[in-house]
Structures are given as structure tokens and as C-alpha cells.
Write a protein that binds this DNA or RNA. Structure first.
Ligand code: MN
Ligand code: MN
Ligand code: ZN
Ligand code: ZN
Lengths: 150, 150
DNA sequence: TTTGCAAATGCAACCTGGTTGCGAAAGAGA
DNA sequence: TCTCTTTCGCAACCAGGTTGCATTTGCAAA
């Protein structure tokens, strides 16, 4: 069974409706290579001939977050982005040129640092965010080429 | 020479004016125990009988960021916060209850991880953000007491 | 000390991302 | 098909932040 079907049947099983908006948003987020903002999403739905009001988009996103289907990501540019909940915790490598986003999974995450925080200042970590900003392969190559041409 | 004087004389030396707003904002950020939003700042200036228009606050903050006196911090709640540039790179431990913010300096930061990113996916890291969200000592103690009382 | 000018300020209007109230439309089980 | 909710669209709203423009102010040269 593909991921879309799993999500849809879980929602159904929990007594939620499968509206065209709901299906379209989940599908769009599943097929997107990077997290989407509400605005991005609205545009994408329109590409697939599903016209939805922005209020509906926001409400549907809130619904899907509440039911653990998707989650929010903040890149600090004032726009909340969304993606389908991944199987595990991870971070992001965000290209400052083209905005491409890669998921980063760390073998030994920051558990040791979190324990240290507890010991040193009695701070009990509930969660953390770690984002890397820089140049993706393509953008870095482009940059190098430009520099070589001079 | 105290930090305030160093900052003021640097600004002066670079041909910038020392307006009452500028001095008040730098002083407020220097004495604040945590990063302040534009709104927080405006309120604090008013406490010190310095009334400033919000536009002026934003413009002054932009000026100070541009001249490396302060820098922005994003905690993902839609408000940009500001603090005086610290001497080095660091992270934050943010209490989800009382919003207290502690600076965290890591002995061996994430340089190894950044190198790995380069090797594995050719991503050139320019900078990163790492924030820990959880309960500060006081809030955690309060929580424990509450639970014990039941 | 006065004067001249660029830098800084206040105000009103604007922008963007996101939210709310409410009546109308549409899922889905009976 | 009927009925009960959930969901939808619309218009109005809110918060954080920005812009254009006319006025004021810091400060240094005269
Ligand atoms: Mn992690
Ligand atoms: Mn670091
Ligand atoms: Zn890129
Ligand atoms: Zn706290």
C-alpha cells in the first residue's frame, strides 16, 4: 500500500472525511520535493485544477498538523512551511540561493548535548531545531563557474 | 571602558550620529537579560521616558544590524528578536513556559557535521541555527511541585 | 554661535501571512 | 434520499513589518 493510501485510510478509520481539498493537500505535500507554504500549496492545487480558498488551506493545514499527518517547519523568513511527517526526527540543509531543502539525518544526534544542558543549567530539553544554511551542489557549481569565467 | 561606551564610540568613529533613540535602544538591549522584539523594545524605551514611533524602532534596528551592533534571532513565533552581538557564535535554550533564554556555547560545535554535509551531498554550509526548546530550572521545579501536590 | 545639510523621525497608508465569524455547501452513515 | 456534521467560501480583521514623504535634529564647518 502506498503512503497516500495509508494516510487516507488512517484518517477514515479515525472518523474523518476525505474531502477533495484534504486529498489534494496530502498528495501535493507527498509529491513535493521540499516543504511548502500555504501560498505555494494553494498555487499547486490550482495546477491540478483544485481551486481552494486560502482560509480553507490554512484550516486544512491546521487540521492535518493536529492529527499528526503533517508538521510545520520554520526557516525564519516569516512563512510557515509544511511537510508530511517523516518517519523520524531530522534536520534540514537549506540553500540560500535556490531554497532547495534536503533532509539531514544524524547518526548520533544531540542527545549528549541535551544531557549536558540538564546537568549544567538544569534545563530539560523537550525538542530542538537545527538548520544548516548554505549553497546546494548546483548553486555552488554555478558560483564556481561564474568565478572561473572572470 | 564599559560596553555601552565602546559601542557608542565605535559608531561615532564611523561617522554615525548618536541620537537619543539609538542610545536608548543599545542600552535597553545591553541591559536586557533576553532578546527583545521591536514591540518589547518600544515598551521598554517608554518606561525610560523615551517615546519613539514604531517605524523609527524598526529603522533603527535595521541600522544596528547593518552595522554589526546587534543581530536578529528567530524563535519561530513570527516575531524577530534582537540582541547585542555577542563575542562568539552560540545557540539558545528557550523555556517554552516563561520564554527565558539562555545562551549556549558548545565546545566542539557542529564543524564535523558541516564537513560531512559537504562530503556526502556537496552542500557548503554558510551558517547554522540550533535552538533547544524545553523547561528552564524554575519552570521545571514549579512543574514538579505541582505534580507532587496532587 | 549660527548655519547648512545629511541623517533620523513621525505619520499615514500600505503589505503579507495568517485568523475569525457566519451562512451555505458537501461528506458519509442511516 | 434524509440528516447531521464537517468543511467551505467570503469578507472582514489582526499582527508584524515596510514605504513615501514632509519635518526635525545631530553635528561640524564657518
Ligand atoms: Mn536533532
Ligand atoms: Mn553552532
Ligand atoms: Zn541551491
Ligand atoms: Zn521557564
Amino acid at each position: 500500500m502506498i503512503k497516500t493510501e495509508i494516510i487516507f485510510s488512517n484518517l477514515k478509520r479515525n472518523g474523518h472525511r476525505l474531502t477533495k481539498t484534504r486529498k489534494a493537500i496530502v498528495s501535493a505535500l507527498l509529491t513535493s520535493e521540499c516543504p511548502l507554504s500555504a501560498f505555494d500549496l494553494k498555487a499547486r492545487l490550482l495546477d491540478g485544477d483544485v481551486e481552494v480558498n486560502k482560509t480553507t488551506v490554512y484550516r486544512e493545514l491546521a487540521f492535518l498538523v493536529k492529527h499528526n499527518v503533517i508538521h510545520e517547519i520554520q526557516f525564519g523568513d516569516g512563512k510557515t512551511r509544511y511537510r508530511v511527517c517523516p518517519d523520524g526526527h531530522h534536520h534540514h540543509a537549506i540553500c540560500v540561493k535556490c531554497s532547495k531543502v534536503d533532509e539531514i539525518i544524524m547518526e548520533n544526534d544531540l542527545a549528549a548535548h541535551e544531557k549536558k544542558l540538564d546537568k549544567l543549567i538544569n534545563f530539560k530539553v523537550l525538542h530542538h531545531t537545527l538548520e544548516f544554511f548554505g549553497l546546494c551542489k548546483a548553486c555552488n557549481n554555478a558560483e564556481l563557474k561564474k568565478r572561473a569565467a572572470r
